[in-house]
């Protein structure tokens, strides 16, 4: 079942005539990992950033089509492009979390970092916060490394640890979908391996969309792959079909490294 249905979606940045995304139709399957691949400028990050409407931080974007998000409580699909009110945005972002390319620890303690989203969501009870923070850190394979220094600044962690902290922070609010925007491109190979394992582990609980430049990464961890080129969705299929048996010539050229 799809947790998110992107339907005939087009996106235009402010002050630009041509849309950066054209008529994209794509599902994000529940408890699966969907990888978005394609050369730089193909629009994969733009698409990802539409799924939690983080674009709206900068005014003047134009959306067309629909992005429907399954509300797990009611079982209904809501079009997130219709959201206008502040509290609806807050709910959307609690349902759809995001991890960025560079680790983004907040300038506060490790505990407060993980608790940040929970506090925003209105959880004030100290013991509940502690439980949720611990669960999130364990879920992000960071608990062993930091359990004795939760009150220390998160800025002192290594890059890989910071990224896992950001994942813990996003997981803590129990989102339905997690969006990863090239989460390992600023990390060394060992940290990258740890993050990849973690992402695969996480799909038990959340549905995942990941943008990556690294095709090995896409083939290693994803269940579905979407190949995009110049704002178009060229091909979407199970990952093994995309990599072993692509239907489109452009996909094959990109996979085999002939362009991109």
């Amino acid at each position: 079942m799809a947790v998110m249905k992107i339907k005939k979606f087009s996106f235009t940045y402010p002050g630009v005539d041509h849309p950066s995304l054209k008529n994209i139709t794509l599902p994000i399957e529940q408890n699966k990992i969907t990888a978005l691949i394609g050369p730089s400028g193909c629009g994969k990050s733009t698409l990802l950033r539409s799924m939690n409407r983080i674009h709206d931080l900068y005014p003047g974007n134009k959306y067309d089509g629909k992005i429907e998000l399954l509300d797990l409580e009611t079982g209904k699909y809501n079009n997130i492009l219709e959201i206008k009110k502040e509290n609806e945005f807050i709910k959307l972002r609690q349902q759809v979390g995001m991890i960025f390319q560079k680790p983004t620890p907040f300038p506060m303690s490790i505990f407060d970092n993980v608790a940040y989203g929970l506090r925003i969501a209105g959880i004030k009870n100290r013991s509940e916060l502690q439980d949720r923070v611990e669960t999130a850190l364990k879920g992000s394979a960071l608990w062993k490394e930091v359990h004795d220094r939760l009150d220390r600044s998160a800025m002192g962690l290594s890059g890989g640890q910071q990224q896992r902290l950001c994942i813990a922070r996003a997981v803590a609010v129990k989102p339905e979908v997690l969006l990863f925007d090239e989460p390992t491109s600023a990390l060394d190979p060992i940290s990258t391996g740890a993050i990849e394992e973690l992402i695969v582990e996480l799909k038990k609980d959340v549905s995942i969309a990941i943008v990556t430049h690294n095709m090995q990464q896409a083939s290693r961890i994803s269940d579905y792959t979407a190949f995009m080129y110049l704002g178009d969705l060229i091909e979407y299929d199970k990952t093994e079909n995309i990599f072993l048996n692509p239907k489109e010539q452009q996909t094959e050229d990109y996979i085999t490294g002939r362009f991109g």
């Binding site: 939690n52 983080i54 931080l57 502040e86 945005f89 807050i90 709910k91 972002r93 609690q94 979390g97 995001m98 960025f100 390319q101 560079k102 983004t104 907040f106 300038p107 506060m108 940040y116 989203g117 925003i120 969501a121 950001c166 922070r169 996003a170 609010v173």
Partner: peptide, 25 residues
């Protein structure tokens, strides 16, 4: 960095909270 503000927004914080809690810190 811009990403720090986006990370705050992406956790459901409103803009003024991101400024007060994160950016100024």
């Amino acid at each position: 960095p811009r990403e720090l503000r986006e990370a705050g927004i992406a956790l459901g914080a409103s803009k003024y909270r991101v400024i007060l809690d994160i950016v100024i810190k």
